[in-house]
Design a protein around this nucleic acid. Structure first.
Lengths: 257, 257
DNA sequence: CCAAAAGTGTTACAAGTACACCCATGT
DNA sequence: ACATGGGTGTACTTGTAACACTTTTGG
């Protein structure tokens, strides 16, 4: 792994180490306060909000690139991370971040700069525990911030469309894969889990049917404890049975063909 | 679009026109004689069986690249074609086709030949009408042949794994998308459609339940005609209601969240 | 006239949907 | 005491699975 002194150092020297023409964009979902959040950063020297992105070392598996990028930016490891789409419109780079950065910095890059050509990007989405993430600015980003999924700022290039595609994919995965581990804290209540589903689906669900369905998946353990100190009746705490959770991740829920 | 005189011409000069480091592999499914077939080609000057593949022009949308490649190889247009995965293991190129071709031809390529580096590949799968395809050798391929999905030859690089992934994806799509148009001839019988499903799923289905389910999707038109000249009772012919078919393609079948 | 394939229907069971009731807790 | 949210149960509807009978046709 190579260290770069600054975003600009990477922009100028990165071509030696990274594949040209391909980037990785991470759509990082978190859940907080009953809201689905997205981790965005402002790009160093540009200022536009953008998805945390990165490049692929020439000998690196792209899944490892995605993991590395996630770790560099959030500090988190062993997180659910899934490739979901490749964005390959040649025009998506027309207004690309690097070009804007060089302009703002009034740098004239070499003609053949590796970042100024056309780029595809592979979208990965990640589900992370909001509370466990403490992103701090790095050489690549001026600032990080969580944004509510319903109040996203204007985003650079086609990042808005990438987010929408990630959300669509997540909604489909919700149907036949367990979701929630690493989005929720270790212990959570059934209403909290339901709220997560409702937020992702943007749809109200019936309390009782939801509970039965979730229990039916067989991936939850109900703890003896209840959530205390809350108004009204104390709800039970649950946690995921990780063995069964991962088994279900592999095999999926759907029974019928 | 650029013309190349031969596969080798493309191998040597293609770097000027194509993106380096990314290819497209097409998993082309056909259906014939109650069997799911795959269109494979032997690579010019190498001989290994491989997926019909191609590259992305520097200003071309990757979906258009996939369409173009499909057309170049099968002559077919307006075909269902879907991106399904990016294969990004750096070792997938260890034994790459181009290297083998140069060796067989006893050509020493320039050190920086664009095809000898590491390549990602974007997998697209296509569903085509077996009968309408008449692939003929082109400069890139020595021969084309349909192979039964259950009797695939040894394939170059990771193409075997790519096929398996395509098949998995197709099985999942079968659940919540209409499938069959462009795999079947315009008019087909219910047992033929069922056979298609059974072949893709590798699973026997109940005749009556299958019929009810398909009719329930509301994408079929039953014709007055029956299939004639066959042994036993003449089955009705059906065709897809294309308006409703495409609507269902967009919206999916699944009702419940 | 009979074997084999196709059309149609019925019943049982599981899953999903829609509700109603009771319980616990903070105000 | 009561409003609010949480736990549990039950009827209804829909979908899936399993299975039987009749019709048509070529040999």
């Amino acid at each position: 792994m190579v260290e770069f002194k600054s975003a600009n150092d990477l922009r100028l020297r990165g071509g030696k180490y990274f594949m040209a023409g391909i980037s990785i964009d991470c759509v990082i979902f978190g859940f907080h306060d009953g809201q689905l959040k997205l981790l965005l950063s402002t790009v160093a020297n540009v200022g536009d909000w953008a998805l945390p992105a990165g490049f692929i070392y020439k000998d690196e598996h792209i899944d490892d690139s995605a993991k590395r990028i996630l770790k560099e930016r959030t500090g988190l490891e062993d997180i659910f991370l899934q490739q979901f789409y490749v964005f390959g419109d040649p025009n998506r780079c027309d207004n690309n971040i690097t070009k804007n950065a060089f302009e703002k910095l009034q740098i004239t890059p070499p003609n053949n700069n590796w970042l100024l050509g056309r780029f595809l990007t592979v979208g990965y989405y990640a589900l992370v525990d909001f509370a466990a993430v403490n992103p701090s600015p790095d050489y690549f980003s001026d600032q990080y911030a969580w944004h509510d999924i319903h109040q996203l700022p204007n985003m650079a290039m086609d990042h808005g469309a990438i987010v929408q595609q990630a959300l669509l994919t997540l909604r489909i995965h919700l149907r036949y894969q367990p979701v929630g581990y690493s989005l929720l804290p270790e212990k959570f209540t059934m209403p909290e889990l339901q709220k997560l589903y409702e937020t992702i689906l943007d749809q109200k669900l019936d309390r009782r049917n939801f509970q039965r369905k979730m229990i039916g998946y067989g991936i939850l353990k109900r703890l003896k404890q209840r959530r205390e100190g809350v108004a009204h009746k104390a709800p039970y705490l649950y946690s995921f049975d990780l063995r069964k959770y991962h088994k279900a991740l592999k095999e999926g829920f759907q029974t019928s063909w």
